[in-house]
Design a protein around this nucleic acid. Structure first.
Lengths: 193, 193
DNA sequence: CGCTTTGTTCAAGATTTTTTGAACAAAGTA
DNA sequence: TACTTTGTTCAAAAAATCTTGAACAAAGCG
């Protein structure tokens, strides 16, 4: 049978530690999309690969299944999964009679975005608050009054931007959350918002 | 006078190619914020520095003023300004009686975001369209019917995400555009949305 | 023209980020 | 306890990205 090794991989929680198990062409191509997406949001290739492969899989996958099928190091898998867990982009699924950790991808776009904003975006915005306060103090020490005024002016522009970004985030989450934005609902197991 | 060299720099379009002209503490600190912001959206430090310095300046700045005050190479300034122009984040300002190009920062957050989405975001989304079509074809070649169905299922989830992102962008732009989101309006020259 | 000023390009160097893999921990098993 | 399986850590190697500066264009000027 064509693709037999991969199929075997996808269909059972493979007890044996057999062959390297090549990816099907569609999996490679799908994973590539996630690698690009990861890149777009500043995450390393390996993280895109791991999430991508989980996204392709029809069964929860173990640590070493990910490592073997992607052909990357265990260090990368471990670190990648740590970040993905932290982001809420993958979840542990406990599988009866197996000591290994099994992972499944988060399929809710809203939750993915929320995790990303929480971990990668908000911290920057928040640290910005205190940095702006510090800049304000430094501007106060500026001796030339005209320049001081101009600097304060620009600082207030910046402060205004920040305020608007903070207000924007809830709007984004609301827009992602509403089922009204969803038209063609996937037909079976992964109907999630 | 304290800070005299910098003040001279900020107040006149300096005809002389004099000293290295150190940055004021508040400028350094402000620029650092822009470097971080650039980083957050995946742009190199030099670009953050250039935009940041222009943001601080009360006068249009020339190529070599940027280069000298930031202490970076001319190559970096040239490439940085190219990207910033392309993004619409800086604009050329023609100054009477000076052959040099003078740059001013774009201060409208809406335009900044629009430029960023247009140049850095949309291309990815759009190339995603065709990539998805290609993945669909590869899935059609999958021999195992059950896997094929599952793969199609996931592809449609992905397609759904993409559709929602496309719908989200206008919402974001609208939210950024409305003056209703602006409360404390800067008092003089840079009142922009 | 020939000279200067202004800016761009791009290969090579510097820096940062990512990946690797060997050593280590933790927990189950016999 | 000794041994195996499962996963983590982290220093060093590899890869990707950014910066530099010298060579090159382009355009004004005398």
């Amino acid at each position: 049978m064509l693709f037999s090794d991969r199929v075997c991989m996808n269909s059972t929680p493979q007890v044996s530690d057999s062959k390297p198990l090549a990816l099907a062409p569609w999996e490679t191509s799908m994973i590539e999309m996630f690698v690009r997406a990861a890149n777009l949001v500043g995450l390393p290739r390996s993280i895109g690969e791991i999430y991508g492969l989980l996204f392709c899989a029809s069964q929860p996958m173990t640590f070493d299944a990910l490592q073997k099928r992607l052909g990357i190091s265990r260090g990368s898998v471990s670190q990648g999964l740590k970040v993905l867990r932290q982001l809420g982009a993958v979840q542990l699924q406990y599988v009866a009679g197996d000591r290994k950790d099994h992972y499944v991808p988060e399929l809710s776009m809203k939750r993915l975005v929320r995790g990303f904003i929480r971990d990668q975006f908000n911290p920057h915005i928040e640290s910005g608050e205190s940095r702006m306060a510090q800049v304000r103090e430094l501007i106060d020490s500026e001796s030339d009054a005209a320049i001081r005024e101009h600097a304060m002016q620009r600082l207030s522009t910046l402060s205004n931007w920040q305020k608007r970004i903070r207000r924007l985030l809830p709007v984004v989450m609301a827009a992602l959350g509403g089922a009204k934005f969803l038209e063609d609902i996937p037909s079976n197991d992964d109907v999630v918002i």
